[in-house]
């Protein structure tokens, strides 16, 4: 593996990698070094920002290469599978019928179907605490399209579903993913010492309530 391939501005480096689990492990390694101001995992890249007061561009690139080339163990990220209680009732799942139909279950069976699936957080972004999920076996699941017209308001905690990929909205706001349920626990806790419930790499399951 090589990298970084690209510069952004004078204080940002980017390297591509299509293995999401490896990216999560690399990102954690970069973060622990304390050298970087930001370490952000994308869908297929890793971006770091540094302070040119601390490192020249040549030093930053050398440090990046060094960290990137270290063999990285990809274990079960963050160990345990987090179980998120969620409602899949009609009120919290405006697109339940469409999604159930595409999956091939009836509307009431969708919750039980979801409960059998395992997910991994591949990336966070868009809003504080917003999580992009990847099904552990994405190829088994039919793909859905985003809504033609995004909703003006999606409730915080709503579970968006595109098939092998899903998401959880952290805040009330606009959104274009079909919604199949809603997580009870807040993902962004503004009055909490640890405001973020989730982090990249976390394994998840949903428990219908």
């Amino acid at each position: 593996m090589s990298g970084p391939e690209k510069f952004i501005g004078e204080d940002i480096l980017v390297a591509r990698c299509t293995d999401s689990k490896l990216l999560t492990a690399k990102a954690e390694y970069f973060r622990q070094s304390g050298l970087w101001e930001e370490v952000v995992q994308g869908i297929a890249d890793l971006t770091v920002k540094y302070d040119p007061l601390n490192m020249s561009d040549a030093e930053a690139e050398a440090q990046f290469h060094h960290a990137w080339d270290v063999p990285t163990f990809v274990g079960a990220p963050s160990g345990e599978v987090m179980v998120l209680e969620a409602s899949f009732g009609e009120q919290d799942a405006p697109d339940r019928d469409v999604v159930a139909d595409r999956i091939g279950v009836n509307a009431d069976g969708l919750a039980a179907w979801i409960a059998q699936r395992g997910y991994r957080i591949s990336m966070m972004g868009f809003q504080p605490g917003f999580a992009y999920l990847e099904d552990n076996e994405p190829d088994q699941v039919p793909t859905l399209a985003r809504l033609d017209t995004p909703r003006q308001r999606v409730a915080a905690g709503s579970i968006g579903f595109l098939g092998g990929r899903a998401c959880i909205y952290a805040l009330d706001g606009p959104g274009g993913w079909p919604i199949i349920g809603r997580v009870h626990e807040p993902l962004f806790r503004r009055d909490h010492a640890e405001p973020f419930l989730l982090k990249p790499g976390q394994m998840l399951r949903f428990l219908p309530t």
Partner: peptide
């Protein structure tokens, strides 16, 4: 809010 972009925090 520095150092939390990987959690979606601007």
């Amino acid at each position: 809010y520095r150092g939390a972009r990987h959690l979606g925090m601007p």
